[in-house]
Design a protein around this nucleic acid. Sequence first.
RNA 1: GCCCGUGUGGCGGAAUGGUAGACGCGAUAGACUCAAAAUCUGUUACUCAUUCGGGUGUGGGGGUUCAAGUCCCUCCACGGGCACCA
Length: 852
Amino acid sequence: MNISEIAPYEFSSVEARWQNFWRKNASFEVDITQTKKKYYVLEMFMYPSGKVHIGHVRNYTIGDIIARFRRSSGFSVLHPVGWDAFGLPAENAALKQNGHPKDWTYKNIEIMKRQLLSLGFSYDWSREFATCNESYYGFQQKIFLAFYKKGLIYRKESEVNWDPIDNCVLANEQVIDGRGWRSGALVEKKKLAQWFLKITDFAEELLSEIDGLKGWPEKVKTMQRNWIGRSEGCVIKFKTDINEEIAVFSTRSETIFGATFLAISPDHPLSLKLAEINTNIKAFIAEFKKGSVAQEVIDRQEKLGVNTGVTVRHPFLNKDIPVYIANFVLMNYGTGAIFATPAHDERDYEFAQKYSLPIERVIESEGDLPYLGNGVIINSDFLNGLTISEAKAKVIQRLCAIGIGERKVFFRLMDWGISRQRYWGCPIPIAYCDHCGIVPLEEKDLPVTLPYDVDFSSAGNPLDKHATWKRIKCPTCGKNAVRETDTLDTFFDSSWYFLRFCINDPNNSNLLKKEDIAHWMNVDQYIGGVEHAILHLLYARFFAKALSKYGFINVQEPFDNLFTQGMVCNVTYKKENGDWLFPNEVQKKNDGSYEVTATGEKVIVGNIEKMSKSKKNVIDPDVIIKTYGADTLRLFVVSDTPPDKDFLWSDEGLEGCWRFINRVWRLFVFAKSCGANIEENSFSIENCAPDIRELYKNFHRTIKNVTDSLEERAMNKVIAYIRDSVNSIYFLLEKLRGSQIVFRLIIRDLIKLLAPIAPHICEEAWSMLAFSGLVSDNPWPEYNKEYIAITTINLPIQINGKLRGTINVNPEEGEESVFEKALQVSSVQNIIGERSIKKKIYVKGKIVNFVI
RNA sequence: GCCCGUGUGGCGGAAUGGUAGACGCGAUAGACUCAAAAUCUGUUACUCAUUCGGGUGUGGGGGUUCAAGUCCCUCCACGGGCACCA
């Protein structure tokens, strides 16, 4: 048989066949009775938006490769799949298409599930659930009640984006340039009673335990640390001339002698009080209240303030300093008040300049103010001459001693607002009774299910407008009451789903069985986008801690290893008028430029950007799977680029992977034609021809390299090593025809090595070559240490650190003998000539270097 | 502004302080073919010599070392995160 005559690989029927086989045989279902060591692989679950995109494919392929690798390495691998199914887009789509969020969501799940199946992922489908399933959110309501009863959930007034025309609350993404997305009205800040989760109770733990997360990227840990933002400082009470105290928080207490004014937040109680008697202040606060709560607007704001007329006494100086209301002081951090030291703080400096307030230097330095660096304290009475840290310690001690200071730690982290004025979310199991107030529902009344018959035709929360749903009897007194009509933030849903996957039958079980959780947790490998580095991962960590504290489970940190994959990018194409074009709408011309295929219009090739619908630089996985098969796509999305880096789509690269799949296919078919069903134990490598022996030994090195690279999740290297060994096999193809046993052994292990990446073709080859069972069930190949031991090396010889030749030596050979051989190399002799050698270096098995 | 990260051929990228550029893409040549495609086999950092061979090269500059892409200092560029947090 001539290898070039082998027909192309018929992926389509093969892939469908094995997908059906795995599904029918529940090949990847697991339970806790298995005696093997457990391994839990989890990819961040998907929002059912309607279509799987290439970014998902990359994420889930990385996960599947790890899952399949661990499985064949002898682990019992839990690899579940589910849907993060509540959320705003379903409501938007329902509005647009006159449909229902529930129908829209379940229809999308069906479509996307079919897509996932067509990629051959090794999921345990028996554990699949969506967060909008009653069994899931019903249990979530139990968690809510438990947290509520423990005081971890509370109700508080909080600001929201309010659309005054539609009379409804807007999510941040519904505010566009400060206006409501539907009405176009200027969005206002409005206070509304909302539910909060006291995540700040766990701030210290959430921060300190980041250090123990050895398997997390440093970058993510840093982001979480910054987000929690612990700062140590001192709260200082200032006496005012109106018989009140103002408490300020400072981390720079050593600069207190430079304090020339106090600034308080417009939301500070004193501000509000003064507003009642001072129209200037009232106007200032009113102006401040306008405008959006959106961060981008706040960030660009100019520093503004108003003098209250109130003064405070400086604690150490015989002087009074004014109190200003300033828009840059935040009520929700620290005490909502600061002492301002313009000489050593940029914001204070800017404010002082604007309002012509005095600026007094208290840290010695040269150059312009504000000065933020280190130095010696000056103009500060008992602090003079001290360093910053000495002064800080001394002044805090003094403030505490005279009873106006207190050491204090504040966190940037704020409590998590969990209520949303939306329909498509988990109902909050609370009743409001005129007699009893806020009453939690009882467990027997759970789940509180979402009504299907809701009206989206007018603005506002459909649950609130529903005729009957919210009217209930009070669980305590039995009188008429109403339900809470807010639903939970979808981050709440995704904060514990990984625990639910541990339960055998998550759609029917009403328990979070401790033994199941104990068996599967922690997640050994979690994989997802870095966009969830802060919120989702922080909330999930918080849930694990809170649920453990209240006895539901016993898990401290849920994710042992975290892997954040890069984005999938592609070039963009535009018409001259700026309209974006899909890649399949353009074609390359002979001169290398592009034109619109249909019309011949000129095409501008734009930047490489993250694939997104709006820029139309998307690739439809379905089309790729149909044209090249799932294995080719899986191979492509992890080849070349390391999985944590951004991946650039290229049609040529994809073609290259398709060629490689066919190249190995031909190899498999060729191997089959060579026959051989000979037992391994009748084989001795010493009887082989030298080049075949070398090939076989090198293949063992490939096994090692592939295994090591998989351990470090470097799929690009895995593929490089496999390709390299395939090349070597091709090189000796005709000789291998006469060495069936070696050939068969190599092919057998090659199939195993490739199987996690391209499972369909490998399963097919495994069965075609009559190996027993499934390749998915077979153990990972092991390498023979003797075969990879190096017996001769090509030793580089350097002169003054420059490569001048090589010699073949045994790595065990003695130093003197190596030098002798090295000096005989003609290129080395030519350079050394008559010169004397000052120093000879031999690093065993590595290098020779002569210094002349 | 602060905190991370990254900088290597035409491109994606390899390289426990020890032969820089594995593997792939692209390019290019040969074999096969009437021809093309596919396939198989070469070549492919730059540069001078175009024969042996030499020189230069991992963002720039400096340093440590027998030896630096790798370690240290410094500057530059790009990417990301946070950003009135007192």
